[in-house]
Design a protein around this nucleic acid. Structure first.
Lengths: 343, 343
DNA sequence: TTGTAAGCGTTATCAC
DNA sequence: GTGATAACGCTTACAA
């Protein structure tokens, strides 16, 4: 790395001073004379001195680094969360080292081990799909390294969490469909081993129940990955029912969009014949026709909240860390796919 | 940080051995007996020992860390590039510390300074919009820290580069429009102070010239940021011409999609009346109606190529680093927005 | 095969 | 105000 880097030792030699004086001067220590301080800084600048933070980290037992584990960086939701994390971290003088588990448990475990050797001061993680339990995270507790999960969290791990209320969001989405007059509301559900998708299904059911609409299992289609392809499959299933649903709540935007396109090809009008609500507020939902009513998943805010919480815990280390759970408010973004021009 | 972490000193005390023996055993040094090695490793595991890589980094003057500077993490192109970088880095035992400049020159400069103190072994950067020259990067040359730019690169900086051939891609896109019979081809151009957008305009012009189609400045609309809104504005401009263009090449997908929607509202058929080609292959281009013909920007591959090149340079440090430029092949993805059923 | 000791660049605790 | 010096945890000549 260094093509002979300048160190405080070099500065000390040049100025005929001790390295401690140099170190203090560079840190504006009160006990050093103003002239000396100024001279030292001037020389440092001239010679292009930069502190070696590796050495400083070792000595002070602080790295100002937080480790982030996400399933994949290139997923819209995660890239926005990471952006929020970096934003907060940067402004607080922390650095973000990033790892993707690619939804592989083995890799997630390996990453937690790397993070220990790297002496990160805190960890933010979103669990991978394969991860059912999280014993590989408890070592952070033992080492007193704060840990914050976001979105896909683990119930049985003593850590802070930042989530949205998927139940409440789904409830709100379904209630919205009811409020515009839908009586027969279908649901495209995600993988039911994942808490967030389970909660979305429950919220849907609870809203129906509240308004005395019977829950009809024929109106619920389960998918494994909420893909564009599965959305089309579910839509065709609904088309084959005796009477078409007049409303549909989908656990994500891709299935909603895909289903809408299938309906349109079948000459069914959105939202007149069937009104549709998605989930996530992916950029595409603003661009398709009709524009899609959806729940904003607050990815950026989630990242920011996770980073703020983590940094607070890092810096409050003396106090007993009580793990904390933050639930972010979601917004229902009403667009044309549910706009029947009533109201 | 550490709530009393185990060190090799602790292991040494427990085993009545010197720390050097412990260190060697943990590294499978040939001169240590098999029994000792096994015993040391066993104890290390029992006590939950993890090496402190900060200390090791200081001693060996290596951090195995690469710094990445991007304008924004949450832009599709960059999140994919970062994903590629992380993928290659992880497999080679390097770690990725990430910073977003948010297109601010001041912040970009500050980040380069941080990266020096952090003793990163290499840097990958995509320049921000405000950056016109890159004196803040030359210090990496002086420190012998390899530097690779991707996508938005600087001409006057001695560094490696990974880019796509924007000129050739634009040429190919325009040629495709000509090949399906377009005679009057418009272009929505990006900010002309940015090389890549300039190259796309040049490629467009060159293709026209090759096929003896006159360049008509009225068919070229310049935008500052290629936003969705600007796409609509340009489309309306084209609609107001005496005769509508029969083909359009846009410097990104958003303007293409926006323009298509304006055309559709004006009862103009895509691709019969006007065929459209975008640029980037954003996910949305597969979902809109009609699906959008576009140039794939190879973001993930760009990230991978940048990381591979950088790591090669880090590890070849003895040799003289000759900066290297990699140009990735782009693909024209033909979809319905140019599918006139001719072939 | 193992131990001793120096040193990576910095910070911090003593002294003076 | 400033200077020695030890220490952070690890690696690695050099000894033994």
């Amino acid at each position: 790395m260094a093509g002979s880097r300048i160190t405080i030792k070099d500065l000390a030699a040049r100025m005929n001073m001790s390295i401690s004086t140099i170190s203090r001067a560079l840190h504006d220590h009160s006990s050093i004379g103003e002239k000396t301080t100024a001279e030292v800084k001037k020389l440092a600048k001239e010679l292009g001195y930069f502190p070696n933070s590796v050495a400083s980290n070792l000595r002070r037992n602080k790295t100002h680094t937080i480790g982030v584990i996400v399933p994949r960086i290139d997923i819209h939701f995660h890239s926005h969360a990471i952006s929020g994390i970096e934003e907060v971290a940067y402004k607080s003088g922390y650095y973000v080292t990033i790892f993707q588990s690619r939804d592989l448990l083995e890799r997630e475990i390996a990453i937690t081990e790397i993070l220990q050797t790297k002496m990160v001061e805190g960890v933010i993680a979103c669990l991978g799909l394969e991860t059912k339990e999280c014993t590989h995270f408890i070592k952070f507790n033992e080492l007193n390294v704060p840990l914050v999960f976001y979105d896909r969290v683990s119930k049985d791990c003593n850590a802070s969490k930042v989530i949205i209320d998927d139940f409440e969001a789904a409830f709100k989405a379904t209630e919205h469909l009811i409020s515009i007059g839908c009586k027969k509301i279908s649901h495209i559900a995600g993988c039911q081993t994942t808490d967030i998708f389970k909660a979305r299904l429950e919220g849907y059911k609870a809203a129906l129940t509240k308004y005395n609409i019977p829950i009809d299992e024929k109106l619920i289609e389960y998918t494994s990955d909420l893909s564009y392809e599965e959305g089309a499959r579910c839509a065709k299933k609904f088309l084959s029912l005796e009477t078409l649903p007049d409303g549909m709540f989908c656990a994500n935007d891709y299935t909603a969009i895909s289903a809408i396109q299938v309906f349109k090809k079948a000459n069914i009008h959105i939202p007149q014949d069937i009104a549709v609500v998605g989930f996530s507020n992916y950029p595409i939902s603003r661009f398709i026709e009709p524009t899609l009513t959806t729940i904003d998943d607050r990815a950026f805010e989630m990242g920011k909240a996770a980073a703020k919480l983590l940094i607070r815990q890092i810096e409050d280390k003396d106090h007993i860390i009580s793990s904390e759970t933050i639930v972010l408010k979601t917004d229902l973004i009403v667009r044309d796919s549910t706009n029947r021009g009533i109201i």
